[in-house]
Simulated scan of single mutants.
Amino acid sequence: MSFHFTPDLSPATGRPDIEVSLPEEPRQAFPRRAMRAAVAAGVFLGTTFAIAVVFFIPVIVFNLSRIEALEIAGRHIPVTQFADELGALFWGTFIVALAFTSFIASLLLFATGRIIRPHRKPVRTDDALVHLNVLRLSGAER
């Protein structure tokens, strides 16, 4: 079947005179991206600090319940040493909270709304197995 195109311009009347491409999305400026990164880091650290405080509350309640005029477990401890011990306990709890927050952040970043599917390699036409399968299928039809 052969087609002949007429020199008539009537099929081209519906097309625009000038080709217009879709506008590209503007790239974010560096200060804006830096501000978003700083806000994300601030939210991350604030959340970590809040979780550390929540985790630390049982520790502080337990340690405050043991105080008897700064005599702990039968020995006298100065207030500064007790405050140092509480500070060390808090920073240990902060590290645990940091690990917990990092785990939750990684889940939110990498697993939100995505379905994990196995990656299949495309079949190459120059692969010998493809040709063998084609020969095997065509061989029974002979």
Results as ranks from 00 to 15, higher is better:
Lys121Gln: 11
Pro58Arg: 02
Ile72Asn: 00
Leu108Gly: 15
Ala97Ile: 02
Ile115Phe: 05
Ile67Glu: 10
Glu71Asn: 14
Gly113Cys: 05
Leu98Tyr: 06
Ala50Gly: 04
Arg120Glu: 14
Trp91His: 03
Arg124Ile: 02
Leu109Val: 09
Phe62Ser: 10
Ala73Cys: 00
His76Met: 04
Ala50Val: 05
Phe110Glu: 07
Leu108Met: 13
Ala83Thr: 06
Phe49Asp: 02
Leu89Gln: 15
Ala83Gly: 05
Ile115Asp: 04
Val123Tyr: 02
Ile67His: 02
Trp91Val: 14
Pro78Lys: 11
Phe62Arg: 09
Phe103Asp: 05
Arg66Trp: 05
Ile115Glu: 05
Glu68Asn: 13
Asn63Gly: 01
Ala111Glu: 08
Thr93Lys: 02
Ile72Trp: 01
Ala52Cys: 03
Ser106Thr: 14
Pro122Met: 04
His76Tyr: 08
Phe62Glu: 11
Asn63Glu: 12
Leu89His: 09
Ile60Tyr: 02
Ile51Ala: 13
Gly113Lys: 08
Ile51Leu: 15
Val79Asn: 01
Thr112Val: 11
Leu70Asn: 14
Ile95Ala: 15
Ala99Thr: 12
Gly113Phe: 12
Thr80Ala: 11
Lys121Val: 07
Thr93Asn: 06
Pro58Tyr: 06
Leu109Trp: 07
Gly113Met: 05
Arg75His: 06
Ser65Thr: 08
Val123Gly: 01
Val53Leu: 14
Glu85Asp: 11
Phe56Gly: 00
Val59Thr: 07
His119Cys: 01
Arg120Gln: 12
